[in-house]
Design a protein around this nucleic acid. Structure first.
Lengths: 330, 330
DNA sequence: AATAAAAACGAAAACGTTTGAGATTTTAAT
DNA sequence: ATTAAAATCTCAAACGTTTTCGTTTTTATT
């Protein structure tokens, strides 16, 4: 069906290897022969067979990107950034994972050589041994993970989420709030929250803590309902991300609460829409773009045999104060 | 490095072909031999070489998905849906395109056999000839496009955007608005807008028309500023999508306008966050999930040689009335 | 016990490239 | 004109599978 080197060779009256070399501008082929061969290739609309090239070159020219899912601003922006950094030189294969087993499946697939390198977003630490093994075969980059152990398998690129959680909490404390809640379960950010609370000696009320795998609008919406039920309510809330913050805000607003007058709410990730929300959402910016591009850069460098040692790169977060947080007026 | 069939064969004292057959449970291999070979393969941690399989089977087990970009709810939700429909059986390679040339590059790459099938989201009609050619090689699905001509190259799955634009406009008209604006440039939706305006004999004021490639928050924000500058302002605005609607709303709200009391705004796509916005955004639901899953299903069916004819599938839209649109009070 | 049939395995080609070594031709140097 | 060197091309192996066909061994049939 598709035209191959053989077809060109036949038409040009030369050997396949000559054609191959001519098309790759090999110096040992006569310039006239090259011209002739290229012309025929053009006429026949020749495109090299990807599968054959992959086999003989031992490369698929593909980078695998394993990400939980896409319909979430944090992940989609990050994924886009990784892609932007890679697309010129490599194809990007996308793999989502709802659970540990799916990630394991992908690791195994990668061992079969279907990608030249891989980026894991929030990898499961349970796979540390598999990662170490895979890391010997192809370059790996982990995004988000804070476990230094992973540098034995690949490089790590992340933002300082603890510092982000700390800054946001501190900001709310400095606005005069004493009754502060937390929604979500990301370890580092929660540590930052605790750090600030401890530093400023703010007592922690367990009723204000909603620790769980909450990261969607709907989760925020539901927690908002729970907050409304509380007899004593927090006046400031630190949310694991912007979706949860907006989900919670939407419930509170619907029930007549004013933000920030009645309750201050802060998000995380500074996703695109946070500044367009009503009110514009205070959030912690983590450079998804920088992180994604850096991950791409590291992978590409490793594939070019530069910088063989694994790196650990941490970007600082930045608190973006907007109008969803305000001074606590008694 | 990686262990191959040859390694297993050597250890088992049999021929490679025997190993290959044994591992694929071919009936002509003795059950004991199979057991023995499988055990050795297990011990050696064998995984079949993807690249070799791709070459000999003439299949990459990969579907290419070409989408403008990801950091936009419409595209990311759609892409996720396509992936969900495909992932079990095929890998998903993602290709973004900022412009025509990039799409052309992808088409050419697909001709080289790097994917077994492809989904194009909002394909450029300029490539119709290339699509027809590629369509002979691998199954194609186009999402969003309304040009029937494309069915000569592949199947089309889309929502009835004109009907959506019509319904939304009609809804705003029926709320009593006479001064109605439009932001965006999608052909079908704009046709729906015009259709409703004509049907209800509402005069069109060119000052209220903002026709351009606007589909991001920021574009909406900027148009919002332009609207504020107008001496006579529209009281109802139909937006090409939710991002533009929210961008425009954010400016208007910032400048003291009340939504919907002063201006009604309607979006399109019914993206996840529209119902969480303040106020919750009236929007037109188009089933990104249904569309994505259907596209996946069609591709898979074609690869299984079922339903060889190209299809044209159109899903109806659904107007979701929320609180960003209200009766026009003079 | 002889023959046919079935079962189990091996040999080799094929997929379409790339690449290093070898063969041939041309050019340069004496 | 002879030889060396350079240029140009061909050969063949290799990448790691799958698969068809052929060969050998085992089992069944009379």
């Amino acid at each position: 069906m598709a035209v191959s080197l053989k077809d060109i060779a036949k038409k040009a009256g030369v050997h396949v290897s000559t054609v191959s070399k001519a098309l790759s501008d090999n110096a040992e082929i006569n310039i006239d022969t090259k011209r002739k061969i290229k012309k025929i290739a053009d006429e026949l609309n020749y495109v090299p067979n990807y599968r054959a090239q992959a086999l003989v070159n031992q490369k698929t020219k593909t980078i695998g990107v394993v990400v939980p899912y896409l319909n979430n601003f944090y992940y989609s922006e990050l994924t886009q950034a990784i892609k932007d950094g890679i697309q010129e030189d490599y194809r990007v294969s996308l793999y989502s994972k709802d659970n540990i087993e799916e990630e394991f499946k992908h690791i195994k697939a990668f061992k079969s050589g279907e990608v030249d390198g891989a980026v894991f977003v929030w990898a499961f630490l349970e796979h540390i041994d598999e990662f170490k093994e895979l890391g010997k075969q192809i370059p790996l980059v982990f995004i988000g993970n804070h476990q230094v152990e992973l540098t034995k398998a690949g490089s790590i690129v992340r933002c300082d989420l603890q510092e982000g959680g700390y800054q946001l909490t501190k900001h709310i404390i400095e606005l005069g709030h004493k009754k502060i809640g937390y929604i979500g379960n990301e370890f580092q950010r929660y540590q930052g929250f605790l750090q600030a609370m401890k530093e400023f000696k703010i007592p922690i009320n367990n009723d204000f803590l909603f620790l769980g795998p909450y990261d969607l609008f709907e989760a925020g919406l539901n927690i908002g309902k729970e907050i409304i039920e509380l007899s004593e309510k927090p006046t400031g809330i630190v949310c694991i991300n912007d979706e949860v913050a907006i989900g919670a805000a939407s419930t509170l607003i619907k029930e007549g609460f004013k933000i920030p007058e009645d309750i201050s709410i802060g998000g995380n990730d500074n996703t695109d829409f946070s500044k367009y929300y009503n009110p514009p959402l205070t959030s912690v910016r983590i450079s998804k773009k920088k992180v994604g591009l850096k991950a791409a850069e590291i992978i590409k460098n490793k594939l070019n045999d530069d910088i063989p040692e694994n790196q650990l790169i941490i970007y600082p977060p930045q608190l973006i104060k907007r109008e969803s947080t305000a001074v606590f007026e008694n």
